[in-house]
Simulated assay, not measured.
Amino acid sequence: MTDIKKIAIVTVFGKFSQSINYHTSLKLDLFVSELESEGFPCVTIDLFDAMNNGLPKGCGYIIVGGHPDQEAHRALCDFSYVCEKSGIKVLPSLDTLLCYENKGLQGLLSLRYDYAFVRQSYHCSPDGEFQETRVYKTVSGAGSSGVALVTNPKQILKLSALGSIKLVKAGSALRLLKMFLASFILESARARFKVLRPHVRFVLQRFQAGLDYDYKVIVFFNRVYVLKRYVRDGDFRASGSGNFFFEEPSEQLLNFSLEQTRKINVPYLAMDIIPLGDEFKIIEFQSVHFGPYTQVNAEYYYEKSVDGWQRCKADSSLEQDYAHAISKYLLHI
Rank of each mutant, 00 (worst) to 15 (best):
Q70I: 11
Q70L: 13
Q70E: 13
E71N: 11
E71L: 13
R74G: 12
R74F: 08
A75H: 13
A75M: 13
D78K: 10
F79W: 08
F79K: 08
Y81P: 03
C83R: 07
E84H: 00
E84Q: 15
S86H: 04
S86F: 00
I88F: 08
L91A: 10
P92N: 07
P92K: 05
S93A: 13
S93E: 05
L94D: 03
D95N: 14
T96H: 02
L97T: 06
L97M: 07
L97S: 07
E101K: 09
N102V: 05
K103V: 03
K103Q: 02
G104N: 06
G104D: 03
L105I: 04
L105Y: 08
L105M: 10
L105D: 04
Q106K: 00
Q106M: 14
L108H: 05
L109V: 07
S110I: 02
S110M: 05
L111H: 10
Y113L: 04
D114H: 12
D114L: 07
D114M: 04
Y115I: 04
A116E: 15
F117D: 01
R119N: 13
Q120T: 05
Q120C: 11
S121L: 04
S121R: 09
Y122N: 01
Y122E: 01
H123W: 06
H123I: 01
H123R: 04
C124I: 14
S125D: 10
S125C: 05
P126M: 09
E129M: 07
F130Y: 15
Q131T: 14
Q131K: 14
Q131W: 00
Q131S: 14
E132N: 12
E132I: 01
T133G: 00
T133A: 06
T133N: 04
R134E: 07
T138C: 08
T138S: 10
S140F: 11
S140K: 10
S140L: 01
G143Y: 12
S145F: 06
S145R: 14
S145G: 02
G146I: 03
G146A: 06
G146N: 06
A148K: 05
A148E: 08
L149C: 02
L149M: 03
V150T: 03
T151E: 09
N152H: 14
Q155R: 06
Q155I: 02
L157G: 10
K158P: 02
K158H: 11
L159H: 05
L159K: 10
L159D: 03
L159I: 07
S160F: 03
L162S: 08
G163Q: 04
G163C: 04
S164E: 13
I165K: 10
I165F: 13
K166S: 11
K166N: 11
L167N: 15
L167C: 11
L167P: 05
K169L: 08
A170F: 12
A170L: 11
G171D: 15
S172F: 04
S172L: 02
L174A: 14
L174F: 15
R175M: 08
L176C: 04
F180Y: 15
